[in-house]
Design a protein around this nucleic acid. Structure first.
Lengths: 278, 278
DNA sequence: TTTATGTGTATTGTCAGACAATATTGCTTT
DNA sequence: AAAGCAATATTGTCTGACAATACACATAAA
């Protein structure tokens, strides 16, 4: 019943690579500390921690720890502070810590064993295509590099996905694509436009008929997220981009895979230009 | 600090789409039941559940529940039995159930709210490229379809990844690739060979210089996992496949992106043939 | 009747404290 | 010096309690 981790080869071994960095403190002593615990009444429960208003404790905790790991505070192989320590640091219960850690384990950022502790997994195991991990990852290096990586990935994926969509889309899927495209053109605000843009590309992925392509949508969302600041408001550019989108829509509608692929390549090249020129 | 879920557009709403299927029972009444609780002494703790010897309780639980979800026992939108129910069903503590559920939430299979319960997320949110989810997914439909999907994905990814590897690989990365290729040729058993084969392809992904390509290695692993049964033992085929691999290795070594890409396409076509002919 | 308001209640969220399982570490004995 | 053994630290698991939340229903007001 247990999923077959990796290939048959069960060369599973003790975490021999873990560096014994006991009671490891974060690398960079930027010390997140409590960013001024001012307007907080004394004696109240749950004093510090990176509490986020709307979110549950374990979710916030997972975000905080996950971010630190991805950011490189605890390099792969190091042993994290133990559960009691986290519990104390953030003034939360051990259960909350455990649930947070379980979330990070599910994303393959961590693994743990009794008497050893929890250590950071090697980077190539990280599930970088996970929404959260990607978001954390996006904050660490300068945006430039991240955006370039994502954009490169889009070049690999989207042309082919679109070609498949042109071959296999259902009428219903086509309707979604067309509507998103139309709404892009009619959008009043830039935000609304970006929204429709995202829907457009996600709909194409769904229409590709390959289930495995769908989860890559997070990359596109992330790209638009970070592209937003770059986006030019020049009307000419917007019109041009709109035409490129419409070309894609048309070729999918007419079921022309090759033309659709080419159209996507053009759009991506255009986006590349926007990034480069900034 | 909280990762920006999706694009800016916070059209976050109450789970309006959840079907109110209270105390939902699994769809298919295949009733996994306890598959004969024979050789188990009476009165012992933790009687049934899908306990897996080596694994922790919450991990086993997550596997069991995750498999059921992916398999379609609880379609997207349905509300799962509550924590107490699971706890009772599997005779484990509520904490264990919660930790398991947190793992599934981290993979976006579930979400939950107080007073509502936990519901299955829409399929397009599932993190299908996660190791575990992929493994569960691989068990559900017939292998044919799954393999075809994965293979199609490889056609999209690997040629481009290899071209990048040819351009950007370091000497160290090249050494890994070459060694894996060599070990493929020298492998004594089929299993050993598959092992090296996997390493070969993963090394190429790593050498591509695009961090986002690395996590896709799980797909390759999964492919080989399921391809294993198909693998022919005919010496001619093995020799042929080996030559194709060596061609790839050579073109990466000589830094010829286009030739490398073409070589990978050939190899994939060959693999396609193996699948089709079976 | 329709709309607002409050009240009950089921479910997850959080906490606290205990014990079990496990593997490292150092000590003891042969 | 080698082998076995005990001490110990850390995660794993269980139990029981209370808080927070938002649906559902009854009740009251317009």
């Amino acid at each position: 019943m247990l999923p077959n981790r990796g290939v048959a080869l069960d060369s599973f071994r003790k975490p021999a690579f873990v560096k014994r960095m006991r009671d490891a403190k974060p690398n960079k002593e930027k010390s997140p500390k409590k960013p001024a615990a001012a307007d907080r009444p004394v004696g109240v429960r749950r004093p510090d921690a990176a509490r986020i208003p709307g979110a549950s404790v374990h979710t916030s905790l997972a975000s905080e720890i996950g971010l630190r790991i991805v950011r490189g505070d605890y390099p792969p192989g190091t042993i994290l502070p133990n559960e009691a320590k986290w519990s104390e640091t953030f003034s939360v219960s051990r259960s909350a810590v455990r649930e947070a850690i379980k979330m990070l384990m599910a994303k393959s950022l961590l693994a743990s064993r009794p008497k050893i502790g929890s250590w950071v997994e090697p980077k190539e195991r990280w599930n970088l295509l996970d929404r959260d991990v990607l978001a954390w990852y996006a904050t660490s290096p300068d945006r430039e590099v991240f955006l370039k990586t994502v954009q490169e990935f889009r070049h690999i994926i989207e042309p082919e996905a679109t070609a498949f969509a042109a071959m296999r889309r259902t009428d219903e899927q086509m309707a979604e694509i067309s509507q998103a495209c139309r709404e892009m053109g009619e959008a009043a605000s830039l935000q609304e436009r970006t929204r429709a843009d995202t829907r457009f590309h996600l709909a194409i992925l769904r229409a590709s008929g390959n289930d495995l392509l769908v989860p890559l949508g997070v990359l596109i969302e992330s790209a638009f997220d970070h592209l937003f600041t770059y986006t030019t408001r020049a009307v000419d550019d917007l019109n041009h981009a709109q035409k490129l989108h419409e070309a894609i829509e048309k070729n999918i509608r007419l079921q022309r895979p090759d033309a659709a692929r080419a159209a996507v390549r053009k759009l991506l090249a255009n986006t590349d230009g926007v990034i480069r020129s900034r």
